[in-house]
Amino acid sequence: MSNELDEVTGPVDANGRDINVINKQIPVTVGTGSLLFEIALWTVIPALGILFLLAGVLPKEEAIKMIVGGVLPGAIFQFMKVKALSYLRALQQKIQADASQIDNYLEQRVVILENVVGLVKKSIDLDTDVMKTVTAYRSGHNLGSDAQRNEASQQLDGIFSRIHVAVESYPDLKSQAVIADAMRQNSYLQKEITAARTLYNDTVAMWNQDIFAWPTKQIVAARAAYTTRIPFTASAETKAAARSKFF
């Protein structure tokens, strides 16, 4: 039997393919099957015990034990749901902590940006609306969701990219120690942000996988109205630059 996917003899896409993150949150849902499963855990064995008791299949004591002990699977599953809810809440807090770490590095980049913008604004035309957005970000506004945090990060990337071009184009700017030091700090922070994004995305991937782990976690996630989270993504500008020829 041949391989279903064969990169040697099968059709190959020579042009490659650009991959994009889908900007969509998927709600967790469960159907009637999950409800019937939970009901069955509580009722099937006790119902059989009652049936055996009435039919005289088992001695009375054995049948009563079966009826009483039959609720044990339901009780165990209830305990598992409580544990699953605690786990998902803890994971949700970890996502927030990972996101906060990204925020800390972004905050430092904003400080650097504000320090150097006065020195380069005569040589580069910074978008006033973008600067207002960044200032709003620093003051804690417009950061209520993953998408808004990602957008703020992408805007900072674009601004620093334009400042870098200006610094490279103007020797008098490049020679200033303050600007040179700021650009080095920015480079360091960008590496830290990349590492923090990777950690955040790993946690988000764990969340997106666990909330659909049936039966326990998925049932709990559906009852809590949880949805998938959107990972950090590269901006269109960054992806375009990555496809450029460097050498």
Rank of each mutant, 00 (worst) to 15 (best):
P171H: 10
A224Q: 03
T203W: 11
Q218R: 13
V120Y: 10
E107K: 07
P59Q: 09
S169D: 10
A136S: 00
D146L: 08
L72S: 05
S244G: 09
K217S: 04
K83V: 12
D98K: 05
D129Q: 04
L36N: 13
V134G: 09
A40R: 02
E61R: 10
S145T: 11
K239V: 15
F52A: 10
V28N: 03
G144R: 06
Q185D: 02
K24S: 01
W42Y: 15
V110P: 02
M183H: 13
N23L: 09
V167C: 13
A180T: 15
S161L: 04
R184T: 14
Q101C: 03
L48D: 07
Y137A: 05
S175H: 14
A177L: 14
V57P: 01
A196M: 01
V68C: 06
I179G: 01
T203A: 05
K191E: 05
D172R: 13
W214H: 09
V82R: 07
G144H: 03
R162Y: 04
E62D: 08
R17Q: 15
A240G: 12
E4T: 06
N23Q: 13
I219H: 03
I211W: 06
Q176T: 09
Y200K: 01
A152C: 06
A225D: 13
D103R: 09
K174F: 08
S161Y: 06
I112P: 00
S161I: 00
A166Y: 08
A195G: 00
S145H: 08
